[in-house]
Design a protein around this nucleic acid. Structure first.
Lengths: 211, 211
DNA sequence: AATCACTTGCTTGCTGACAGCAAGTAAGTT
DNA sequence: AACTTACTTGCTGTCAGCAAGCAAGTGATT
């Protein structure tokens, strides 16, 4: 069963058009935003008809949800590779580096993801789950790192891991948000350096403060 | 020149319809989001015709920009009152309390403002200036507080006030964003308490570390 | 291996809703 | 009474979503 470019299986055809449309959507959203990007633009820009995007993703929200999930998968891959088996303050710092690496390697994806997060914050959002679950997952990851850091004695035992996680995730969310809106005045690198310094200074167990 | 409810000056009439429409817009945006709220809904919900909102504010973006400015003014009032003449770490902590107070007293306005900030992050936003200038102003305020704190010896001299400000403003932005999207799981009070603790622990000058 | 019934990928025509505009009416101002 | 300002109504172009149809791939039977 040979597959030339002229003869594809159904699955291959739809996979091809899917990725072509999601890719076109990224470019269009970067320029026009989600609202002014039309489903017709996406379909035609991907080399198909004006109707395909609607047909495939059901609705505009459906397409953006798929896009959000797709980019989120890429991001989680970066996070996993960057943090590895680290725990405690080291894991938190590594995650900050992973974000920087992600937006450096895939700035398009980083910006689009942030735009979609903003969209999903609207009360009328039809895809809030993806964004919310990502943030909840981030928070529980950080909480786990903090607990492990306390168990190993790296992190002082009198802080609440859950609140440390909330504070940390808030910083991440706001940092990426401000990076989106103020790309020129915002310096990822130095701001993250300050965050790392604060984490070490405020979380590290004092000398001889073993459990 | 007496003013009964039936006989108003032109200025009074337009001021009345303006505030009525902005107020109606708040309620509608809270329920339907900015996108699914229509100008016709706003005008009619305020007791006027479907066309007034467009006529008065020029466009949907124009209305949301006016709404953003209006709520921002309220917020800056709270900030001013809460911070007063404080500087350094005290000012930063007072600003956190001011935010909590604002969303406690005016939860509607707090939520709508956050929704509008998210909207203005889109590349197609026609009112990005208001949101950006607010965040820039916040950042320069915090930087000033940090510099004053260093000058008075409260804050250690080896931190960069600009980066402290970036980190602080990132936290604020993210915190309010997460509060909007996860109102039930997010606790303003305790998360801010952790932030205050971190600020004190990581910024306070050590004993005898005078300039 | 040829063909026929069936599924899936994709396109085109249509409808209702909305933003924005332009022309008009009513209310106040000098 | 002339004029300005507040507000309304009729209209147009655009878009999301739907439904009907066409084309290409798939699988079973003989």
């Amino acid at each position: 069963m040979q597959k030339s470019s002229a003869s594809l299986t159904q699955a291959e055809r739809s996979a091809l058009s899917d990725t072509a449309m999601l890719d076109a959507a990224k470019d269009l959203v970067l320029v026009h935003g989600t609202e002014k990007t039309t489903l017709a633009m996406i379909g035609e820009s991907a080399g198909y008809s004006r109707g395909l995007a609607t047909y495939r993703f059901g609705s505009k929200a459906g397409l953006y949800d798929a896009l959000c999930k797709s980019i989120s998968r890429d991001w989680l891959e970066y996070l996993k590779r960057g943090v590895g088996e680290k725990t405690g303050i080291d894991a938190m710092c590594a995650a900050l580096d992973a974000i920087r690496q992600f937006v450096e390697d895939l700035p398009r994806e980083g910006r689009v993801l942030q735009i979609l997060y903003c969209d999903s914050a609207s009360p009328s959002s039809e895809f809030p789950e993806t964004s919310i679950s990502i943030h909840k997952r981030q928070r529980s990851d950080v909480q786990k790192w903090a607990e492990q850091g306390q168990a190993s004695g790296q992190i002082r035992s009198d802080v609440d891991p859950g609140e440390v996680a909330s504070q940390y995730v808030s910083y991440i969310s706001g940092m990426t948000f401000l990076w989106l809106t103020n790309p020129e005045t915002f310096n990822f690198e130095t701001t993250n350096a300050e965050m790392k310094r604060q984490l070490r200074d405020s979380l590290a167990a004092k000398q001889g403060d073993g459990q």
